[in-house]
Design a protein around this nucleic acid. Structure first.
Length: 205
DNA sequence: ATCGGAAGCT
DNA sequence: AGCTTCCGAT
């Protein structure tokens, strides 16, 4: 019931897409404890900005290192974040504290020595936050092959999200091939999350 | 600028 | 849980 705070100039970009710029798909917003009141996560927002050319003067991918980005205008990024979260008093000091909490979560880390430069942790990000193309209500007596996964928009969104500098299909696949897919918790909540979408990115072989 | 503890908020 | 706010230390 409490959708927009600064309803004036802010055309509710959150939620589902429909805008050319595309917001994030459902899986990007962790359901968390309260289903229904899903809020935008900071790293989603960062990704959102990074993917739009109109913000390239504010925040942009760093060429060379995959997943590395530079905040060119910290004040502006903070302002935008504050607007999205309805926190007018947001500033880079506070925003960066939130980013620092990502260090332990392995979502981000700092690129030491480079000012305002951070780097996403690909493996954690991809595996933990997207690939729950959960097989809801699926008896699955036999192992289903990860090859199919009949999704349309989701893979497309994910792909466009990952299209930017970093992470090619080969790199992801390579990482997972070497280390193996990160341990799937067998009997956690009874949900099986050992489907990994790597096949969905590359051309079907 | 960057870090991380501590307390507070939802 | 995921920040937001504040702040002393490096």
């Amino acid at each position: 019931m409490h959708r927009s705070c600064l309803a004036e100039g802010v055309p509710t970009i959150a939620g589902n897409s429909s805008i050319s710029g595309l917001a994030f798909p459902d899986w990007a917003y962790k359901a968390e404890s309260s289903p229904g009141s899903r809020q935008i996560q900071l790293w989603h927002f960062i990704l959102e900005l990074l993917q739009k050319e109109e913000f390239r003067h504010v925040i942009a991918w760093q060429q060379g290192e995959y997943g590395e980005f530079v905040i060119k205008d910290p004040d502006e990024v903070a302002r935008l974040w504050g607007r999205r979260k309805c926190k007018p008093q947001m500033n880079y000091d506070k925003l960066s504290r939130a980013l620092r909490y990502y260090y332990n979560k392995k979502i981000l880390h700092k690129t030491k020595g480079k000012r305002f430069t951070y780097k996403f942790n690909l493996s954690k990000l991809i595996v933990v936050n997207c690939p729950l193309w959960e097989v809801r209500a699926m008896p699955a007596p036999n192992l289903f092959r990860p090859t199919l996964v009949p999704m349309g928009m989701q893979s497309k969104l994910l792909h466009s999200m990952l299209l930017t500098p970093w992470a090619t299909v080969e790199q992801l696949a390579g990482q997972w091939a070497l280390r193996g897919p990160p341990a799937a918790s067998e009997d956690k909540k009874g949900s099986s999350s050992r489907i990994y979408p790597m096949e969905t990115f590359g051309p079907p072989r």
